[in-house]
Design a binder for these strands. Structure first.
Length: 433
RNA sequence: GCGCAGUUGGUGAAGUGGUUAACACGGUGGAUUGUGGUUCCAUUAUUCAUGGGUUCGAUUCCCAUACCGCGCCCCA
């Protein structure tokens, strides 16, 4: 048996409908924000991610799907989409457009070679927004508002917004030095992972679950004390706008993010749901004012976020949020025998083109099984087509709920269905029978 | 990359070193030759992830591989 690759999954039936529904919500939400859709290739030159995401990040150093194409070019399946969107922004010279800032959203699969576990796949889908050309702190707040509003729209309750600031390059570098100096004499008190972090990304030490209770960690210098005046003001303003939008947040100085490109605001939205597993960060993002320049464009500020669809779906499931209604049909067509199938096909096709949801038996079931099938399909009406119906130009249509039967003339079927389907079955207003 | 636990039909699953692999749901056919959702009957895994090994014999024991699940690292 050929199996699907590790860490991937198939989408079908119920799950497929759910995902299509979410995709529609995303697209219409983005219209409200006046954000344009952007789509970039699933693979890019490997160098893009090395320069964009950062050579030293785990994502690039050990999690990418790399391959050599037939022209011996180094290619990588995108592990995230920010670098790709920035490349597209530069390559298409969007920085020159009149319409600034440039607001873009994307949705699609990302690839990371990791051990799968709860809420983590090798192929996973992200919805994200990237906005270029403005350093306005109000925009940082707008970015944070998108996932918050999206989750709210879906009815997801247990979410928590954590924000922090890494400051501009100057502040960030000062702080890094301070941390290195601070931890140097205590290195052997830290766990193995943290000793490695000391070399690679000292900010991460603060985030360690293992060492979290050590005094050295608790008393470590705090980034917020190292922000210069500009960075401090930016961060205060972001908070001001968040409050104006009524978005609850917490300042968490330990959020540093694993991607190298962040400056100023960084944030995470986590599922604050008891028992929800360890992969509880549903969304992450922040400002990246140096990224466009690093990738080779003009110095341009940017800010964005990405959220994972799989984690969102499992959070919704965990909170018992249904999203979609049960599938249903307007009419299920039952030909009595082989002789009526041609006629039944013609009726079915006509009604579909008139906007009804119709299906018909293709298993040549006996009538009893077909009635069962109509229930499985949640059909509101059943049409039985036999010799008598064909000869006399009518259909026997049965309301699957009330069991009432009607003989409906062929030319009146559309009117009949219109009339009976408009009024929902559980409407008790008494205006119609 | 590391650690732990799993893998039996369409589904949920029980089970044992030895030729019938329980039970339930679902599916199909019938009792009812054009009206079901109840009931009853029949049928539904030559096979227990894959490949090796031990054995007279393995789905059951051992090893390897694959995949799934959970955790670490990291991230969405």
């Amino acid at each position: 048996m050929i199996q699907k690759p590790k860490g991937t999954y198939d989408v079908y039936q119920e799950k497929g409908r759910k995902i299509l529904y979410l995709e529609n919500i995303i697209a219409s939400l983005m219209e409200y924000y006046n954000i344009d859709y952007v789509r970039t290739p699933i693979f890019e030159a490997s160098e893009l991610f090395h320069r964009g995401v950062g050579e030293t990040t785990d994502i690039v150093s050990k999690e990418t799907y790399d391959f050599l194409d037939r022209g011996n070019r180094n290619m990588t399946l995108r592990p995230e989409n920010t670098a790709g969107v920035v490349r597209s922004y530069i390559e298409n010279k969007m920085y020159g457009e009149a319409n600034q800032p440039i607001k873009t959203w994307y949705y699609g699969p990302m690839y990371r070679y990791e051990r799968p576990q709860s809420g983590r796949f090798r192929e996973f889908y992200q919805f994200g927004v990237e906005i270029f050309g403005s350093n306005d702190p109000a925009l940082d707040a707008e970015i944070i508002s998108i996932p918050v509003n999206f989750y709210k729209l879906l009815g997801l309750k247990g979410i928590k917004v954590n924000i922090n600031s890494l400051g501009d390059s100057e502040s960030r570098e000062n702080y890094r030095q301070a941390l290195l100096n601070y931890f140097k004499p205590h290195l052997n008190c830290l766990c193995e992972d943290c000793q490695r972090r000391y070399e690679k990304n000292p900010l991460r030490i603060l985030d360690c679950k293992f060492d979290a209770n050590l005094d050295i960690i608790k008393k470590a210098p705090r980034i917020l004390d190292y922000l210069n005046e500009t960075s401090k003001n930016h961060f205060l303003n972001v908070q001001k706008y968040l409050k104006a939008m009524n978005i609850d947040f917490e300042i968490n100085p330990n959020i540093v993010r694993g991607l190298d490109y962040y400056t100023h605001t960084v944030f995470e939205v986590e599922a604050d749901i008891k028992g929800f597993g360890s992969q509880n960060v549903l969304c992450g993002g922040g400002r990246y004012n140096n990224l466009v320049e690093n990738i080779g464009g003009p110095s341009t500020p940017g800010v964005g976020f990405a959220l994972g669809l799989e984690r969102l779906l499992s959070a919704l499931e965990f909170e018992n949020i249904k999203l979609i209604e049960e599938k249903s049909l307007d009419l299920y067509v039952i030909p009595m025998s082989e002789n009526e199938k041609e006629y039944a096909s013609s009726i079915t096709n006509g009604l579909r083109m008139s906007g009804f949801k119709i299906d018909i038996d293709y298993m040549n079931r006996n009538i009893k099984s077909n009635f069962k099938q109509s229930e499985r399909l949640n059909a509101k009406f059943i049409a039985i087509i036999g010799e008598e119906e064909i000869n006399n130009n009518y259909l026997t249509i049965k309301n699957n709920k009330t069991k009432q039967e009607y003989k409906v003339k062929i030319e009146e079927i559309i009117d009949f269905l219109d009339e009976h389907l408009d009024h929902d079955d559980d409407c008790n207003c008494g205006h119609h029978e």
